[in-house]
Amino acid sequence: MARDRRIGIEVYVDTVCPWCYIGKKSLDEAVRSYKAQNNPDVEFDIVYKPFYLSAKPERPGQQSPSKEAVYLSRRTPEDRAQLLRRLGAAAAPYGTRWSWAGRLGSSRASHRLLRLARGRGSDVQGRLLDEIFRGVFEEGQDVADPAFLARAAAGLNLGGDEVRRCLREQDAGVDEEARAAREDDEISTVPTFVVQGRWRVGGMQGKEVFARLFDKAIKAQLKTSRM
Rank of each mutant, 00 (worst) to 15 (best):
D171G: 11
G140N: 01
V163S: 02
E176Q: 15
S188M: 06
R165F: 04
N157A: 15
A144T: 05
A153H: 09
R151H: 11
R164N: 07
A154T: 13
L167N: 10
A172D: 14
R182S: 11
A178C: 08
P146W: 04
S188W: 00
E186I: 12
D184L: 08
G155P: 03
D145W: 05
D171M: 10
D185P: 00
R179H: 09
G159T: 01
D185G: 00
A150C: 10
A153K: 09
A181F: 02
E186K: 14
P146S: 06
P146Q: 05
E186A: 14
L149W: 06
D142C: 04
G159P: 01
C166A: 13
G173I: 10
A144M: 05
A178Q: 08
A153Y: 04
D184G: 00
F148Y: 15
L156S: 07
P146M: 05
V174N: 09
A180Y: 00
E177N: 02
L149I: 11
G159F: 00
D175E: 15
R164P: 01
P146D: 06
G155H: 03
N157R: 15
F148H: 10
D142G: 03
E162K: 01
D161H: 11
R182C: 02
D142E: 04
D171A: 15
L156I: 08
A147L: 12
Q170N: 12
A150N: 05
E162V: 03
R179M: 03
E183Y: 00
D175F: 09
A172T: 14
D161M: 03
D142Y: 01
L156D: 02
D145Y: 04
V143A: 04
D171C: 12
R179W: 10
E176L: 13
F148L: 09
E162R: 06
A147D: 14
V143N: 01
E138C: 12
E183I: 08
L149Q: 09
A154F: 03
E183S: 07
S188G: 08
E186H: 13
A181D: 01
A144Y: 06
L156W: 05
R164T: 09
D184E: 13
V143H: 01
E186Y: 07
E162L: 06
C166W: 05
D175W: 04
G140R: 00
R164A: 15
G140V: 06
L158K: 02
P146A: 05
G160S: 15
G173Y: 09
D142M: 02
R165N: 15
C166Y: 04
A180V: 03
R164M: 06
D175P: 04
R151P: 01
R182P: 00
A172E: 15
T189Y: 12
T189F: 14
G159E: 04
E169A: 14
D184A: 13
A147T: 14
F148N: 06
Q141H: 12
D142H: 01
A172C: 07
N157C: 06
L149R: 08
E176A: 15
E138N: 01
G155D: 03
R168M: 14
E186D: 05
R182V: 10
A152E: 05
R165H: 13
A180S: 11
E186L: 14
R164I: 03
R179P: 00
A147I: 10
R151N: 11
A172L: 14
A153M: 09
D142K: 00
G155K: 04
E162H: 02
D171L: 13
N157D: 15
E183H: 03
L156P: 09
D161I: 08
F148K: 10
D185Q: 10
A150K: 11
N157T: 14
T189N: 11
N157G: 10
E139L: 14
